[in-house]
Nucleic acid binder design. Structure first.
Lengths: 230, 230
DNA sequence: ACAAAAGTGTTGCCCTTACACCCATGC
DNA sequence: GCATGGGTGTAAGGGCAACACTTTTGT
């Protein structure tokens, strides 16, 4: 059964990528879904994704599908898990490499349904419609990964617009982690990470204005270094 | 490009699993390799692995290949990463789902080359021969994962025989993490985790006898719970 | 002036780290 | 009796959690 006993022809699976794309807007953690036009699961919502092409890196396939189906580019992407259980796709043997992705609230606004896909829409992760295939399971797993990332790295700001207040950032943490956080401790912790800096601007809203922050170049470099592998 | 536009026939990749199987023996962290009999990379060492069958779970395929090629069963297995870069296999389009696996020193002794594979042998991870395909990269990534696991969970003992001394366990940590640890702090930390218990036996060697420990049922349950997902 | 969110420090506790000596055995 | 690895406690410092009031604005 070695790869090298290769004169015989073995059956081959189809390989797809599926992308769990998160963002944060209006106080909700949201996931992008596409409404399927065709069977199986016509009119069900599903993760964006599709077949991998030959001579294409898996991550490139994920980026391409996101662009084709939702018009978004330049996105934080990382491999999540590969799902290959028999029966996960009624059409036959289909293995899916799932990716985990984040867009800022700014980028999220550019999303529009691509030509060859159905409608694209954002859904509250905690209130999803019935999903096609095993996509609910994939989202649950992605959410778990998002929680780890938020706790261990400072990646919360990837979900927000370019400038944001500390209260907004805290709201992201609270909603993703599903727990209430202490304001002072939160601020101390985030500021001590040295990953965000003041913009000097203020946000004016209903009440006392709040300082605006952006994530610092340092934070971006840190994350790039951490991802240099594999 | 949706999965559902499926009347056209897309080319399909071959899908394999490759397993990075670790153990610890004679003061070394070791990886199991198989000597390839056929081209490409004939006579090079490679990770155990092979094609996934239809109607087979990916993890089952990994377990099967380990059994066929090395005769080992009932192993700690978890998915590591999926490698699909173009050109990673000279035979064409081959995507590999890599698995991370650990056997105890006891189990490692049962390893023997299977019928349809070449020789099987254990190698010091820090002193590997030239490897086939992108297998060196896969091993480097698996090693990184092993380090995380050792730091965050108490899984060091999976590498050791059923009963072991604290000094042996410390040696595992030191060699995997490549740093020297303080004996008292190490013992305090491990014991406070409540994952190992005394067997009541002693190991008699050259010098003062050492207490033998085993990992407790609790540790096994904990790890099972943590892995219940995805 | 009042409602509402922004902003700010201190304390106690726990966990981590650094560190050195006696003990039990085999030879 | 000596060489060798086994085994043990304490003190200081850093990080984390708990906790309440003042400030600034819009209306």
């Amino acid at each position: 059964m070695r790869a090298s006993s290769s004169k015989k022809e073995y059956p081959k699976p189809s390989v797809t990528v599926d992308i769990v794309l998160f963002t944060f807007a209006e106080g909700e953690l949201r996931v992008l879904l596409i409404k399927r036009k065709r069977e199986p699961f016509a009119n069900h919502w599903a993760l964006p994704g599709g077949f991998v092409n030959e001579n294409e890196r898996l991550e490139d396939a994920a980026a391409r599908e996101l662009y084709e189906e939702a018009g978004v580019k330049d996105i934080y992407l990382e491999q999540l898990y590969t799902f290959g259980d028999p029966g996960r796709d009624p059409r036959g043997w289909v293995i899916s490499v799932a990716y985990f992705a984040i867009v800022s609230a700014d980028q999220a606004r550019q999303v529009h349904a691509g030509d060859d896909a159905g409608d694209a829409a954002w859904f509250n992760v905690y209130d999803l419609p019935p999903l096609a295939f095993d996509h609910e399971r994939i989202i649950r797993y992605a959410l778990q990964r998002l929680r780890y990332k938020l706790e261990y790295t400072g990646l919360g700001f990837l979900l927000l617009p370019e400038s944001f207040t500390l209260s907004q950032l805290q709201a992201v943490y609270e909603i993703v982690l599903r727990e209430k956080l202490d304001k002072r401790n939160f601020r101390k912790k985030i500021l001590s990470m040295n990953i965000i800096e003041e913009t000097g601007q203020m946000r004016h809203g209903d009440h006392r204005p709040a300082r605006l922050y952006r994530f610092s170049a340092r934070a971006i470099e840190l994350e790039k270094a951490r991802r240099r592998f594999p």
